[in-house]
Design a protein around this nucleic acid. Sequence first.
RNA 1: GCCGGUGUAGCUCAGGGGUAGAGCAACUGAUUCGUAAUCAGUAGGUCGGGGGUUCAAUUCCCCCUGCCGGCUCCA
Length: 644
Amino acid sequence: MKEIQITFEDSSKHTIPSGKSVKEILSSINSNNSRDVIACRIDGIPEDLSCIVQKDVSLQTIYRNSPEGLEILRHSTSHIMAQAVKELYPETKVAIGPAIENGFYYDFDREKPFTPEDLEKIEAKMEDIIKNGLTFNKKRVSKEDAIKFFKSKSESYKVELLEEIKQDEVTLYEQGSFTDLCRGPHISETSLVKAFKLLSIAGAYWRGDERNQMLQRIYGTAFFELSELQAYLKNLEEARKRDHRKLGKELELFSIYDEIGPGMVVYHPKGALLRITLEDFERKEHLKRGYHILIGPTLLKLDLWKQSGHYDNYREMMYFTEIEGQMYGIKPMNCISHMLVYKSKIRSYRDLPLRFFELGTVHRHEKSGVLHGLLRVRGFTQDDAHILCTPDQLQDEIISILDFVDYVMKIFEFEYMVELSTKPEKAIGTDEDWERATGALAQALKAKSFNFETNVGEGAFYGPKIDIKLKDVLGRFWQCATIQCDFTLPERFELEFIGQDGKPHRPVMLHRVILGSMERFIGILVEHFAGAFPTWLAPVQAKVLTITNAVDQYGDKVRSLLADEGLRCELDTRNEKISFKIREAQLQKIPYLLIAGNREASSETVAVRLRDGRDLGQISLEKVMKMINEDVKQKRLIPGGEGI
RNA sequence: GCCGGUGUAGCUCAGGGGUAGAGCAACUGAUUCGUAAUCAGUAGGUCGGGGGUUCAAUUCCCCCUGCCGGCUCCA
């Protein structure tokens, strides 16, 4: 028999007889951990373990505890789900069913919507399929045969997919009664699925296009170990507990009233304190970095929106109103008044870069179905800036914004990732402008040696952008900061500066936000900190709790001392037990609880209890104020620091 | 905007064709207490809005609206 040579990842080479499956090869060579191998790569291409090797190849193993291994498991589980659905509801057509970040889904076309009870039935059927230990069999067939096969099964979505495939040969995977068009690879048999759960049902457009048929998507997840599934479900539970809409109510931060309108936020006293604290921080940081603060109006005449291009490209997102026969638009962006301020006088190259900053409240008519607490609203305030500079200054400006973002994100201990978005279908400006602008952004990212992904066609209509997605404590990503290049607005508003040569030149412009919107950022902060804000941000930084009414006066003295220091302090003199007051204050996530009884009143101290339950004992008022001030100054995330 | 679910007291939630209930909160009284819930009492709702079926609708049906989970879109 012919012999072939297998080269492994560690460069070791083995000579074996041709015609063996990968599984056989692995168990003949390394029996120890071959059981943990779930799939492989042959010459770099993902393959099943059942793949027969007939020539010299390089062989890489994919282990079950690798991200790729998990993805394969989930993909296979989606096939098992589709099989279960087809067996229970044969009239259903299948669409696509990939693995996704935390699990998998499969899209189905079925007249009757799936119900939660259906999910239970499907899960039970899946258990059966898993128990039966069906093997995943890969078949290579010609495209024509595959089309014939799926036509005979009335699987029109599969036929549509096939018709767009360029290759003549396709692969099908078959387990039990179910056959799917699929590239693979898959696990070898269904019994390898040890832990899975179907999570939700949702509508989803065929191929993600809203002009297409709405399908029914079932989401699920799968793991190799039950303990991992349980940990994941626990994480979901934790996320629910941290939901900013729930905490926003409990901590009395904000409301969104039906009566006022969807997506319109009202800040309650505590939320308002949090917000102005963030805003004060922002103003300070911007002034430090040479920004000029502007304040502009909400309503601007329609002509300006026509001039800017917003009317042509953004109209359906805008609100309009008529005043004395004159049409106005409510601003969806802050740039226009900044343009006019730039134009208010003749600018010299010596004035550039000019950085205009505005905490600008904008309104966008977001589709009703997308609204979500503070994270997606219709009226929001951006920490917006427009930087006008010479083309030469562009890269340095982008770099200093990236540094600014980094500085701010570190304060909250957010990690983040960076994406570059290029020209979308609906866009203004020439291709050359787009190339220059995209190049400038990419070069700045390279100069800071950022790893970034490129999102083709995802830019704003007026220019390419860098999006910064921050990662919260639960590992979720949120879009906040963005840096957008704009060569067209300076053109449309005929902005000029006088150059060294005494002639007029056109500046270039950057739009950028750091936190993004105050609303979204606050929503993220609530979830990130589970409502337990760092002392510098906490709406109430300290609460004085009196033990009996005999010390109410002393309690008020403590409160006013702290207030004089500029600290946000409340006093609880209710006729309640101290444990009751502590419980309540703790649930309100107040960083410092200052307990005042007779002992403290007579010694000018308070008994300090931190939010996390640490009891620091009796401490002098002076020392307590110093502690809290130190938290604020250092923007410590944990009250009192971690070292106490 | 689309698909599905859902809307009962300030909050969290039961209930169900014969006009509603709990806990917490609120209010009143008692208690003045040392580190996560003191006791008792009182009050509180056109059951999201409109229409229909019915002797009778909060309950069943339809429409609208808000909210929730997704899709599409996005700071």
